[in-house]
Amino acid sequence: MDGIHDLGGLQGFGPVAHSPAEPVFDRPWQAAARALLMAVAGAADVSGGEFRHAIERMEPGHYLTSDYYERWLTAAATLAVEHGLVTLADLEARAGGRFPLSGPVLAPPVAGAGPGVDAPRYLAGDRVRVREWHSPAHTRCPRYVRGKAGIVVRVDGSHSVPDIEAHGTARRYEPTYSVRFDAADLWRDGQRGVFVHVDLWDSYLEPS
């Protein structure tokens, strides 16, 4: 889905609040939120794709104003409700107030995974183009490279396609590739000597 999580290239953000070192968890609740997500994922057999999609479905304003671990908490609670472990009414009664969850899944459930891809269709050095595609499903194809051409620099073996994995129990395996894009092609701003590499599943690509 074209969600708020897909941040690559968005403009208007200010400085990075960089620190050279910091505690792993600033507050105990952050560690608890992380552990609760793990508990829900274990109890409901939640895949990595389904977990990421639960965060991506957050309302954009909530996403942008949340601490990172508030996003984990929201995903944990959303998945717990969707998998029938708890109800929203119970959550709000215990919390003594509103408990905002992520929005609904927009994509239809995936029944069959379709045929996988065994052998890589591209090799290092091949020129490829990213499919111009706006699926309502979870995807790991960032918007900023869609429709853009690049060069394959590495082939990384077969991995479960997130777009399938996030929406049911079916799985499809395809090779992933690291594709090198010239920043001048991505942004048309004349910058030189900058290359952005994005790791992409086979079905995100077409020959160019």
């Binding site: 968890f25 609740w29 608890a32 609760l36 793990m38 944990a76 708890v86 959550l91 215990r94 408990f99």
Partner: peptide, 27 residues
């Protein structure tokens, strides 16, 4: 947000989905 974490933790614990010491171990 702490109230929401506590609420989810309590409900999951009551349902036996958070083993004793799990949060501490993960942390």
């Amino acid at each position: 947000v702490e109230q929401r974490v506590a609420a989810l933790a309590a409900l999951l614990t009551e349902r036996g989905l958070v083993p004793e010491g799990f949060v501490e171990k993960v942390t």
